[in-house]
């Protein structure tokens, strides 16, 4: 029933999409994290002019499907080609690659900023007060006390978000990028062997996700040496 030769044949083909999958995931997770941190910190100040637009951005990107976001950026903004050319941004929005990265980054920034905001607020108030009693500046408090604790606290939730992003890169195949899922779909329609292709492509994604989860678990344990994990 299950044909091993077929697996041996399709796995290299599927793996040829792995660099693109990893690039899309890696770049958008990195850009998204930087943005998420900025957004979370900007909300700490409670300036209404700053907090309100960020809340709106977060609500919109969390409340609409990623696929709509990708289409809006790739096809939707393509409609404004003359304007984008005039401001010199057309090279960015012309490429499905960059559009996918922009959409994925903005999406994960919205989810990530909520995770980080919660983690920053979870840092005990007494620690911040102690830091200011020691004469630390606000930047020093942030860098030496608040962020190390908050980021460690955020690891479990953030690793879920990272997994969702790895899965999210598969949507790039709908805007013509041949990453692992795009190649898998091509193979299914050529060979009519949906189960085998699903198993092989699924195994690639599970391996990526398992590696990420193990690495982040190890990071968390390393940062929390005194806590014995259940």
């Amino acid at each position: 029933m299950i044909d091993l030769h077929f697996f041996v044949e399709i796995i290299p083909t599927l793996l040829s999409g792995l660099p693109l999958t990893l690039q899309l995931a890696g770049l958008s997770i990195a850009i998204g994290f930087a943005l998420a941190l900025l957004l979370a910190l900007a909300q700490q100040g409670n300036h209404r002019m700053l907090v309100w637009p960020i809340r709106a951005f977060v609500a919109v990107f969390r409340g609409t499907p990623l696929l709509v976001q990708i289409f809006l950026i790739y096809y939707g903004l393509g409609q404004f080609r003359p304007t984008l050319q005039a401001v010199g941004l057309w090279w960015l929005f012309r490429e499905p690659y960059w559009c996918a990265i922009i959409a994925l980054s903005l999406n994960t920034a919205a989810y990530g900023s909520e995770i980080l905001r919660g983690a920053i607020q979870g840092v005990p108030r007494g620690l911040v007060e102690a830091a200011s009693a020691f004469g630390m500046t606000r930047i020093q408090t942030l860098r030496l006390v608040v962020l190390p604790l908050a980021l460690r606290q955020a690891i479990p939730s953030y690793s879920n978000e990272i997994i969702l992003m790895v899965k999210g890169t598969s949507l790039a195949s709908i805007v013509t990028l041949m990453e692992v899922t795009g190649i898998a779909q091509g193979l299914i329609s050529q060979t009519y062997r949906a189960v085998e292709v699903f198993v092989a492509a699924g195994a690639i994604y599970l391996t990526i996700n398992f590696t990420i989860i193990s690495a982040l678990n190890a990071l968390e344990t390393w940062l929390t040496p005194y806590r014995v994990r259940a």
Partner: peptide, 8 residues
């Protein structure tokens, strides 16, 4: 939960 929904 680990495989992209599109693939499923």
């Amino acid at each position: 939960r680990g495989v992209p929904d599109l693939l499923t």
